[in-house]
């Protein structure tokens, strides 16, 4: 790639990233930087240094970052582009939806576990965790002992269900607290 090609490529990339600015403002930026690059090249020649466009371009950094340096302050205080508010609304709506679903599932599951744990104490025959003989399915809940199934946990289901239930409730609360911060 010749020196000119490298410069052209850099300026083309820069103008792409400056597209958010008004054309006159973007053109002025490009013109000034182009003028600097050719001036600096000329100076290299006069000084008898090897002509190296890449070294000069390196001083300007990545065209995207350079453009960001301009765009940042030029667009500061201006109205956000159309569609921006809508995106914020969708984001808020999504967070609200996530909040509701998390609350429902988290506390719902927690409640089921707690009820199971407590119910086992009063109705030990009806509540348990069973597995069928072929061991290809696991059943949990309040029902008559299924035929040919054996109970897995016995009385252990009480502390395990209560512990898991409380754990779920705690983590649901923590997650909801974080999500609330984003609403």
């Amino acid at each position: 790639m010749t020196e000119r090609d490298a410069i052209h490529q850099y300026l083309t990339a820069l103008s792409k990233y400056l597209a958010r600015l008004e054309k006159a403002a973007a053109d002025d930026v490009i013109r000034e930087i182009e003028s600097h690059i050719y001036d600096a090249l000329e100076q290299q020649e006069i000084d008898g240094d090897p002509v190296d466009a890449k070294a000069i371009l390196a001083g300007f950094g990545d065209p995207r970052d350079l453009a960001a340096g301009y765009v940042e302050h030029m667009l500061e205080g201006k109205a956000p582009p159309k569609g921006f508010k809508a995106i914020q609304r969708v984001k808020k709506g999504a967070t609200r939806g996530l909040f509701a679903v998390t609350a429902l599932l988290g506390f719902g599951f927690s409640l089921v576990l707690l009820v199971t744990g407590v119910a086992k104490i009063f109705e030990p025959d009806l509540v348990g965790l069973w597995t069928t003989e072929s061991a290809n399915s696991v059943m949990m809940g309040m029902r008559h002992t299924p035929d040919g199934a054996s109970e897995l946990l016995g009385w252990w289901i009480v502390p395990i269900a209560l512990g898991l239930g409380l754990g779920f409730a705690y983590w649901t609360k923590r997650i909801l607290w974080i999500l609330k911060g984003k609403l």
Partner: peptide
Amino acid sequence: ITEGTLYPLMDRLKR
């Protein structure tokens, strides 16, 4: 400072 720092800054100072 680098070119990449100088020029955007000059533009801001002008504005």
